[in-house]
Design a protein around this nucleic acid. Structure first.
Lengths: 197, 197
DNA sequence: GTCTATAGGAAGATAGAC
DNA sequence: GTCTATCTTCCTATAGAC
């Protein structure tokens, strides 16, 4: 066995845990399946993490970061609002379609976190983060293409997050591409209608 | 111990399982905690249900029924569109706020079902049901108050379900009443904007 | 630092007494 | 039909050999 630092081992275990969770769900991610995925002995787990909850904490932090990175399509001043809105939503949706299982996991982890006394606050912070990122994304669109939102940004951010979150969850369940695309277009039309030059 | 039929016992166990799941989450609803909640011996479980999965199936059916009953506020012809929209959304939201834990459970059960090979189809049927109910709700609003939706009903139903589903999930996590109310008002304004007399 | 062995307990399910 | 006792398996966590 190659000798590695505890920090490197931690990384390996977090990656392995995420792989298992994506493949089989959070409930199946036991200490045994995680160390097996990482190719480590069972004993390795508890000198890298004090407990399983500590690992879960790390996993949630990791997943949250990548889940909703700021997504704004490139845009120059004067670009039609409809174009930048359409492109930005397409970037978002392409990412969902590229890694559906990873996004399904984020919903599962949120539920899991809400049920663990020590992790409930993490779930709340996760959604505060989503709200902030979505708000920044909307603000950036407006700034780049030179227009204003006629709806207060916090309200628009929450409303838009709900639309994207709801559409994503629904699509992850029924995988109806056509229906999702139509609804997403409707959201685009809504956004255009609340944009003022 | 009172002597009861297996069917009555089944009902008691389903009710007990839902109670436990609302209180402590799906993961904590073991055969032991469920029979304890029902005040029955452990052995009672397996002569009422072939397996735990069979119970889960029954629980999901039960929860889904009540989760999104058709909600349309009373309306007469000629009532302003904005009024019926506002009242209908208020009926929906009051129900969420009255039983938040029960609604949180529906999300948890959906996740759980998606991970169980035998139950994944149940999750899809659940969302088909939500889509249908939401579509009927929108159609009823239009018929009662005498107007038309300018967006195709299937698209509007999916979009609207996403908004309500996303807002509900977000509120269940951060319980921010003011933010939820503002976003819900924004949805009401959107609906009014796509209604044509 | 690394890993084997095992503790200690809880899970789903069943056999068989009453 | 009802329930106790138990089987088997899996879990998290730790003790202690190397």
């Amino acid at each position: 066995m190659v000798r590695r630092s505890a920090d490197e081992r931690r990384e390996e275990l977090i990656e392995a845990a995420i792989k298992v969770m994506i493949r089989d769900g959070v409930a199946k991610a036991t200490t045994r399946t995680i160390v097996a995925e990482a190719g480590l002995p069972l004993g390795a787990f508890h000198y890298c993490f004090r407990s399983k909850e500590e690992l879960l904490h790390s996993v949630i932090e990791r997943i949250t970061q990548g889940a909703l990175a700021p997504a704004v399509a490139a845009a120059a001043a004067g670009v039609p609002v409809a174009d930048i809105v359409r492109d930005t939503l397409r970037v978002y949706w392409d990412r969902i379609r590229a890694t559906p299982d990873e996004h399904l996991l984020t919903y599962e982890l949120t539920q899991y976190a809400l049920r663990q006394p020590g992790l409930a606050e993490v779930a709340r912070r996760q959604y505060r983060h989503y709200l902030a990122v979505n708000g920044e994304s909307l603000a950036t669109m407006a700034r780049l293409a030179g227009f204003e939102w006629t709806v207060p940004l916090p309200t628009l951010a929450r409303y838009g997050l709900a639309v994207l979150d709801g559409l994503t969850l629904n699509w992850l369940i029924d995988r109806d591409d056509a229906a999702a695309a139509a609804a997403l277009d409707e959201y685009a039309a809504y956004l255009v209608s609340v944009a003022r030059p």
